[in-house]
Design a protein around this nucleic acid. Structure first.
Lengths: 162, 162
DNA sequence: GCATTCATACTCGGATATACTCTGTCCGAGTTCTGCAGG
DNA sequence: CCTGCAGAACTCGGACAGAGTATATCCGAGTATGAATGC
């Protein structure tokens, strides 16, 4: 039950991209956060496939959000990287073994699966309640106004990684 | 973000043990559900370490619940097998990179981690709301009364696996 | 008949292989920008 | 001065290794049972 580390990277990248006015190369985003360039690129591909970001090829290319930051939720990003399948997978073991329940009696998911899925639904609902815009606003509140403006300026500048 | 398959096994085993009047060998529990004997034994060890079940050694030994079924929640079982660490691990990448936030400004978890942890809290709360006794009652409702009594009878009998 | 001893069979527990997924890297295909030549 | 073209540099995208974890298994340590034995 561990989440890919790339989720954290992707969320922070989305927050940074939300204030950029043009495409941002993946290498630039990686340098901003001090993470592996090639591995972050792999996760950004997942975001592209999910339709959260658009990739612009060629010189001056990069990634940019396809929708407004307020329309992208944490759930979208998590599911883009982790997949949409639930963490708990019911294998219907009640239908196995010597005292197996007959299949015709199993028209509904068993109680265990129901409870597990309800819990995951609560988890997804909580994630869907937070948008990238919310996180950006929160960052401005805690780290001071102008923080994201500085990030955007650095992203389009030619300053070296360090 | 996948959960160990052993979680499903362990929960069903707890439901079965809740109606047994003595220790049940792991091999018997495995045969009841048609799963690997040795691998289930490994998961039952985790339940033992977590204090959910007690192991009785020797002939006629086995596993039995240490507490009443109503006092054991799904969360207890899940955490016994998956660990108590959250799925999302914040690596504080905001403190990395050329525009890193200074450590003294990071006294509180960043917004991303807060949202992720809040979602996991909702998930844990939902799991903690369901007990083994609840699942046992639900099973009796759907599969008919006496189902668990039959399981308990089979567990202490000498009937072969199949 | 009863207590003691001993062998046995059965249990759990940890140490040991294998498969799969996550992590990290590399190189090729494609596109856009830029500089330059020509009109 | 404007247009068209060619080169180059930079981008993404998918294919390729290594590490760590989940899965599955095996064998040894320990204990309660039960029978056999002696009193």
């Amino acid at each position: 039950m561990k989440m890919t580390a790339g989720v954290e990277w992707a969320v922070h990248c989305c927050v940074a991209m939300s204030r950029a006015d043009g495409p941002v190369p993946s290498a630039r985003l990686a340098d901003l956060h001090g993470v592996s360039r090639t591995y972050l690129a792999k996760h950004l591909q997942s975001l592209t496939r999910a339709g959260i970001v658009r990739s612009v090829e060629g010189r001056d290319g990069g990634y940019q959000l396809t929708h407004a930051a307020a329309d992208v939720t944490l759930l979208d990003v998590v599911q883009a990287l982790e997949g949409r399948e639930p963490a708990f997978r019911c294998t219907e073991i009640r239908q196995c073994g010597p005292l197996a329940a007959p299949p015709e009696a199993c028209t509904r998911p068993c109680g265990v699966a129901q409870a597990m899925h309800a819990a995951e639904r609560a988890w997804r609902d909580a994630l869907a309640a937070t948008s990238i815009a919310d996180l950006a606003d929160g960052l401005e509140r805690t780290s001071g106004p102008g923080t994201l403006e500085g990030v955007a300026r650095w992203l389009r500048s030619d300053a070296p990684a360090r």
